[in-house]
């Protein structure tokens, strides 16, 4: 279709002004591309350079070449292994929670017409729009607090000893807070995707005697493959860099129990002012993000641009 219109264009408009039609308008794209290139290349090059230097702002800021010393230090830092493990646990659990619960809740909302569905939708989506610092502090003070938090009250109702969530289950607490923020995104996206499912197909399946579970399994779920992939990709980008939620609640502790890679590097950078080590850590974070990116783009990059 596009070729035929292009041909028609050529016939209709033979004047010299038409060169714009074939001109890709690269000068309109250039600012965006140039700025993003600058944003990627300059700081990354600097990170690479710093990572090879012994450079601490507290030591008067002298730079001396140290080769891979910073990397050795970073890998052998006592925070490295917990940082890596926590990052993977955090990303993995939140992804799992938001995809599984997201699919189930979205299916529940789409399953039937019920009273106040619009309001339920609005309520479910809301946590996504709350600032990370607000969400984290509300959970810390009003929900998780061992004395007057809501969960403590609930525990007492059932005669159990209230739990000091942030002290005893720091990582789990962070996972709950972050899931609370990201589950709504999955619900919203999957719900929208479900609405585009062919209703006639569903009706036909129902008439052929398929139960709701069979319809969900064989029709809805395959239809959701692409939106689920999108949820996984977008959330991975943000979850790899969870920071404010840890910064405002546990400060990565106790010990390194809730330190992720992002927080560990922040700690090297702006608490200990060790530029070299923070840069080495930063590069490792970039490599990890890239590995995730390559896998994810392979998985769905094609899907994303080839619109049906």
């Amino acid at each position: 279709m596009s070729t035929s219109t292009a041909k028609a264009q050529l016939e209709v408009q033979p004047d010299p002004g038409k060169h714009r039609l074939n001109n890709p308008g690269w000068f309109l794209v250039t600012p965006s591309v140039a700025l993003l290139l600058l944003w990627m290349v300059v700081p990354l090059a600097m990170t690479l350079y710093f990572s090879l230097m012994r450079y601490n702002l507290l030591d008067g800021g002298e730079k001396t070449f140290t080769g891979l010393g910073n990397f050795t230090f970073f890998f052998t830092d006592e925070g490295f292994i917990p940082g890596m493990t926590n990052t993977l646990l955090l990303v993995g659990s939140v992804l799992l929670i938001s995809v599984v619960l997201g699919v189930l809740i979205a299916a529940l909302l789409e399953a039937s017409e019920f009273f106040g569905r619009g309001i339920v939708r609005v309520l479910l989506i809301s946590p996504f729009f709350i600032m990370p610092t607000v969400g984290a502090l509300i959970f810390k003070n009003l929900i998780f607090h061992p004395v007057s938090g809501i969960l403590a009250a609930l525990w007492r109702v059932f005669g159990a000893q209230p739990v000091d969530w942030l002290a005893n289950y720091p990582l789990l607490s962070i996972i709950i807070i972050v899931s609370w923020q990201w589950l709504p995104f999955a619900i919203l996206l999957l719900m929208t995707a479900m609405q585009s499912l062919d209703q006639e197909q569903k009706e036909a399946a129902r008439l052929d005697g398929a139960g709701p579970v069979a319809i969900f399994w064989h029709l809805t779920l395959p239809h959701l493959a692409r939106p689920i992939a999108v949820v996984v990709m977008i959330e991975t980008i943000f979850l790899l860099s969870v920071f404010a939620e840890i910064f405002t609640t546990t400060n990565g502790g106790p010990g390194f129990a809730s330190t992720n890679l992002a927080y560990l590097i922040y700690n090297q950078a702006l608490v200990q002012f060790d530029v070299g080590m923070a840069s080495a850590g930063g590069l490792i974070a970039v490599v990890i993000a890239n590995i995730a990116a390559i896998i994810l783009v392979r998985m769905i990059g094609k899907n994303l641009t080839d619109q049906p």
């Binding site: 890709p24 794209v29 965006s32 591309v33 993003l36 944003w39 990627m40 300059v42 700081p43 990354l44 600097m46 990170t47 710093f50 980008i237 790899l240 860099s241 920071f243 890679l261 992002a262 590097i265 922040y266 950078a269 702006l270 530029v275 923070a278 840069s279 850590g281 930063g282 590069l283 974070a285 970039v286 990890i288 993000a289 890239n290 995730a292 990116a293 783009v297 990059g301 994303l304 641009t305």
Partner: peptide, 27 residues
């Protein structure tokens, strides 16, 4: 090249902020 450009732009979102924290701070 349009699709490539778009995907490349998306890939810049994959750059974790901590990866460039130090240079940006110092700049």
């Amino acid at each position: 090249r349009t699709k490539q450009t778009l995907l490349w732009m998306l890939s810049t979102k994959m750059l974790p902020p901590v990866g460039v924290l130090m240079p940006i701070y110092l700049l």
